[in-house]
Deep mutational scan, measured.
Amino acid sequence: DIEITTNGEEDAKRVIKELQKRNLEYHIEVHGNQWVIKVR
């Protein structure tokens, strides 16, 4: 598993777009303004 910590929603959406392009499965956890994306 890979864990990507982003700085808020805009940053997270940019990362998610890339993950979707590669058809990767991911899970999002929001901790305040930090979005942690866990990639399987």
Rank of each mutant, 00 (worst) to 15 (best):
D1C: 14
D1V: 14
D1F: 15
D1P: 10
I2E: 05
I2D: 04
I2M: 12
I2A: 05
I2G: 04
I2R: 08
E3I: 15
I4Q: 01
I4P: 01
I4T: 02
T5N: 06
T6E: 02
T6V: 15
T6A: 13
N7I: 12
N7R: 10
N7H: 12
N7L: 12
N7F: 14
N7Y: 15
N7G: 06
N7M: 13
G8V: 07
G8P: 02
G8F: 08
G8M: 05
E9L: 11
E9V: 09
E9M: 09
E9D: 04
E10N: 07
E10W: 10
E10K: 09
D11E: 15
D11Q: 13
D11Y: 10
D11W: 13
A12Y: 06
A12L: 13
K13N: 11
K13C: 13
K13H: 10
K13A: 11
R14I: 10
R14M: 10
V15C: 10
V15I: 15
V15R: 03
V15M: 06
V15E: 02
V15S: 02
V15W: 12
V15A: 04
V15H: 03
I16E: 04
I16S: 02
I16D: 00
K17N: 08
K17R: 14
K17Y: 12
K17H: 10
K17W: 11
E18Q: 10
E18P: 01
E18G: 05
L19A: 02
L19R: 00
L19G: 00
Q20N: 10
Q20T: 09
Q20S: 07
Q20F: 05
Q20R: 13
Q20A: 09
K21R: 14
K21T: 07
R22G: 04
R22Q: 12
R22H: 11
R22F: 11
N23P: 02
N23V: 03
N23S: 07
L24P: 01
L24Y: 07
L24Q: 04
L24G: 02
L24I: 12
L24H: 03
E25D: 11
E25H: 14
Y26M: 03
Y26T: 02
H27K: 12
I28E: 01
I28S: 01
I28Q: 01
I28D: 00
I28G: 00
E29F: 10
E29G: 02
E29W: 06
E29N: 04
E29K: 05
V30P: 02
V30L: 07
V30M: 08
H31K: 12
H31A: 07
G32I: 03
G32L: 04
G32H: 04
N33V: 06
N33E: 09
Q34G: 04
Q34M: 13
Q34C: 15
Q34S: 09
W35K: 02
W35G: 01
W35T: 03
W35C: 04
V36E: 01
V36P: 00
V36N: 02
V36W: 03
I37Q: 00
I37W: 00
I37H: 00
I37G: 00
K38Y: 14
K38H: 11
K38S: 07
K38P: 00
K38Q: 05
V39T: 03
V39N: 00
V39G: 01
R40W: 10
R40M: 13
R40Y: 13
R40A: 09
R40D: 05
R40V: 14
